[in-house]
Amino acid sequence: MSAPGFAPPTTSSTGLAAEALACLRGERLVFERLSFSLAPGEALVLSGPNGSGKSSLLRQLAGLGPLHDGRLLWNGTPVDTDPEAHRARLAYVGHQDAVKSVLTARENLTAWASLGGGGGEDEALATMGLGALADVPARFLSAGQRRRLGLARLFLRPVPLWLLDEPTLGLDAAAQAGLKAALARHLEQRGMIALATHVPLSLARSQELDLARFSPVRAAA
């Protein structure tokens, strides 16, 4: 199943497709001519050394980072024709947890639920094993617990596309197992996941994308 696509995807394909993406950071070309296609029920695992652009690519997929070249397609339509619709179909968990210390765990989720349109904070907390900590102010949570709280946002609103940047960072074995199960469930429900990870998550139906292959320097060398 590991077929990092050089082949340009057909425009009629369902799901997320990238065509010849490029990314500039500062004035440095991080990657170029990066293409892949991600069908419903599939996961895309990004790999590559530090600085190869995994986080930048995830931000591009979320619509946060600009596409310096190429196109991003959803069901064959460029996403920048309707960025709001794209935002409504994705959930993004970045490096930072976006957890407010002065709010309780549940309040943190409620704030995000009311922003994104969603609910079920208690189920989300339970999924990440935080049910007992729901009413504890987030400043008392450990780094791993804050991470879990950040990940719990994924379950507030059913969206097809999950973009995860090192989701396992700071998680213990139990939490990692829980996350793995949640990811597998999302794929079973024909969701899509793009994630950068250093921990093998052994997901069914996953393709690996080695970003080092798209580095202009490596290509020249």
Binding site: A62, L64, Y92, D97, A98, K100, L115, G116, G117
Partner: peptide, 17 residues
């Protein structure tokens, strides 16, 4: 504060203008 803790990303990604 939102910029530093990553909330700004999520605010920008929340559906709506």
């Amino acid at each position: 504060a939102d910029y530093e803790d990553g909330s700004l990303d999520l605010l920008l990604l929340s559906p709506g203008q």
